[in-house]
Design a protein around this nucleic acid. Structure first.
Lengths: 297, 297
DNA sequence: TAAGCAATATGATATTTTTTCATGTACAAA
DNA sequence: TTTGTACATGAAAAAATATCATATTGCTTA
């Protein structure tokens, strides 16, 4: 049972997500009439129209748009609130919303899979949600409470969050088979040489090869797969995590450039809100993750 | 009408605040049976008992205590959420919860009264709440959202809040009629002399006379009235805001010590949450206050 | 330009939830 | 033991919310 009943808001959100009343019937398990009435009631309560509907299609009004976003937020925190109170029974329940940076599943040192398994092996009623996003976005979503924990190489840390070091990720510079440097002997490669070629970067400048001069127009990607693709075209050099390259078939089509010269690491952190409300599920998962990562490095 | 209906939690909070079911009837405007049923339902939903009741008296259980605090928090944010959505109509409504340090009403430069009047003169449906507390507490309550704005001489400012300078408050050191220094000529008073007497301080060390050596056991107070009382005993010297002393009868029984030597000022700030949700009422009051304070200084 | 259709609104009725009223139970104090 | 207070409970009433059938509306389409 739910502690807070937000029938009207839940209906509103479901209607928006379903793009109209008709489809929301199935999402909500009530008839279209009921939905119609609920939306009317909500509009009466608010004193303004939240959406245009009818044969012309479904569309939020300007205020409706604002209301929708706020409603989603409050529903999420209502769920978390429920979970907090229910967890006082000793049962692990509610949402656990985890954010990670992309290409994290092959980072063996992180032990994400192992700790998730440990967490889930315990008796629990947790609804898991995993989101992939950039460190900046993850930070933002942690602060708003949209995420409970996030895992990424956070470079600029903010006061609202607290960070725990998890592991290191090793990076090298790679080129594709078609690239002029592909057949170059390592001994002849140095930063001077590298500087002649275009380099592809991640949009959040977090994996920059340190001390590399980037004189040339460079490509920007927001995702590891995209990075690999661009490097494979043979047009760009680019940094990639070693585990990422080694875990895939195409590794043969990529070449590490002067690994003794061009290698660097980034530190992965677990981030949570400093002033987090107590949630057993979050607590337990953090424990599991930190334990698994700490066990051998 | 309310957007979020938290019947169960509202009942719970009202019952706790009324100290039992019987009195909560009047607070809630429903019969005792209804309350009994609601509390039972809440306990069923939670899966644990939240309070002991019966002829033996009313008492929260351990978990009930936790639940009560969380419930109060969520109800407050639900009210604010309602206000946010309702204010999209253009009507100023909802709570406006203001925190101030004590003895603020005689600080003329602050123009608190004038700006409150301006604010309230506008058509509005705002429920005002004014809380008096120490700067530390005010900071805490702002962060949790318990307060919307706070006014005090904040000395250590935190990142979560943003501060606007409002005005200055002038302080002097005073002694009571019975104090040995009461009849001392100002010329003979210096820090050396002062250091021989006990000084009373505010518990948040914010109005400390700068550069005063406090060698002697000193008294601590958390409130301006208390400070005045202790000074009037003739046993302590103590700092007081000038406006505070001048605005009351007893000023004759207090003496400023070497005002040319011993005077200092503290800066009053208005603090709000940096990442505050948009509330028209809050916005307007802040405008009013800043305008009134800025108009002449 | 009217018929057809798809999306929502509405009125009457059914169902469920919540409240009250009357009464029962338990327990501390007299 | 009695009494009175504080809460619990069952039945009935009231209120809120749902459904079903049908109306309305505006956009296609012929």
């Amino acid at each position: 049972m739910k502690l807070l009943r937000n029938t009207l808001l839940e209906t509103f959100v479901a209607v928006v997500d379903s793009g109209g009343f008709t489809d929301a019937q199935f999402a909500l398990g009530i008839t279209q009439s009921a939905i119609s009435i609920r939306i009317r009631d909500l509009e009466t309560a608010l004193g303004y129209r939240i959406c245009e509907r009818g044969r012309g299609g479904f569309r939020l009004t300007e205020r409706g748009e604002i209301a929708y976003n706020k409603a989603r937020d409050i529903l999420r925190s209502a769920r978390d609130f429920d979970a907090e109170l229910l967890e006082l029974r000793g049962i692990t329940t509610g949402d656990l919303r985890i954010g990670v940076i992309d290409a994290v599943n092959t980072l063996a040192e992180l032990k994400l899979e192992k700790s998730l398994k440990q967490f889930l092996d315990r008796p629990n009623e947790v609804r898991l949600e995993i989101v992939v996003a950039s460190p900046t976005e993850l930070t933002q979503r942690l602060i708003t409470g949209e995420l409970h924990v996030a895992i990424a190489p956070f470079r600029n840390q903010v006061a609202e969050l607290s960070y725990t070091e998890l592991c290191q990720e090793e990076h090298r510079l790679y080129c594709g088979r078609e690239h002029p440097l592909y057949d170059f002997p390592d001994e002849q490669i140095d930063k001077e040489v590298i500087a002649h070629y275009q380099i592809c970067q991640r949009s959040y400048n977090m994996l920059d090869p340190p001390n590399l001069q980037l004189n040339h127009p460079k490509a920007i990607v927001a995702n590891m797969e995209a990075m690999a693709t661009l490097i494979e075209t043979g047009h760009y050099l680019g940094p990639l995590p070693v585990h990422f390259v080694e875990s895939r078939r195409q590794s043969k089509s990529l070449r590490e450039l002067a690994p003794s010269l061009l290698h660097w690491t980034s530190t992965f952190y677990l981030a949570t809100r400093s002033t987090s409300l107590y949630r057993r599920a979050v607590e337990l998962f953090v424990e599991d993750l930190v334990r698994c990562c700490g066990s051998d490095t």
